[in-house]
Design a protein around this nucleic acid. Structure first.
Length: 169
DNA sequence: CCCTGATTCGC
DNA sequence: GCGAATCAGG
């Protein structure tokens, strides 16, 4: 993945807005949260306001590389399940969402199933997409866990914008 | 377990 | 410069 000026700009913006690294990675597409964090550091904007490095970070003797300690490959569930369009955690109108749609083609997954209100059932993600007052409004509609109202990804956003609100480190 | 950012270091 | 692995923590 290449960090084009455009992507860096987006990164800066989202980071400045307080989105987590993983959220930014999801929106940018094609990068891991580690990549985002790494880039943030290289750009020297890790501070993001208040967070201080209270973690002196102990030095490691050396990384055994990717030779010995790699017993479990851990199969990826799917590099595909992103609900990219509705990632914004805010509920108020966000110009961000609309703008983001532009560079999202690399995420293969259909963004939603364009379900109308009537079509929702217990197993469909009820994450709203778009302006509820506009005509194109619909719901994510992707399959959700047994009891959850949202698909896995949206559930994370809905239920735990948590952790973010840390103060001291 | 989920997540967060931070750091190191091989590439 | 990049990012996976790892760490430290909530």
């Amino acid at each position: 993945m290449i960090w084009t000026d455009e992507r860096v700009e987006t990164l800066r913006k989202l980071w400045a807005e307080g989105l987590s690294a993983s959220q930014i990675a999801a929106q940018l597409g094609g990068v891991s949260r580690n990549a985002v964090i790494g880039k943030v550091h290289r750009l020297k904007l890790s501070g993001r306001g208040r967070t201080q490095t209270a973690t002196p970070r102990q030095k490691k003797p050396a990384q055994p590389t990717v030779k010995a300690p790699r017993p479990a490959p851990a199969p990826r569930p799917a590099p595909s399940s992103f609900g990219a369009t509705a990632l914004q955690t805010q509920f108020d109108a966000e110009p961000l969402v609309r703008e983001r749609v532009r560079n999202e083609e690399n995420v293969v997954v259909p963004i939603s199933r364009n379900l109308q209100l009537i079509q929702l059932n217990e197993r469909t993600c009820k994450w709203p997409i778009g302006d509820p007052l506009a005509e194109g409004f619909h719901f994510c509609g992707n399959d959700c866990a047994e009891n959850g109202p949202y698909c896995r990804y949206h559930a994370r956003i809905a239920f735990q914008p948590a952790s973010e609100r840390r103060r001291v480190r």
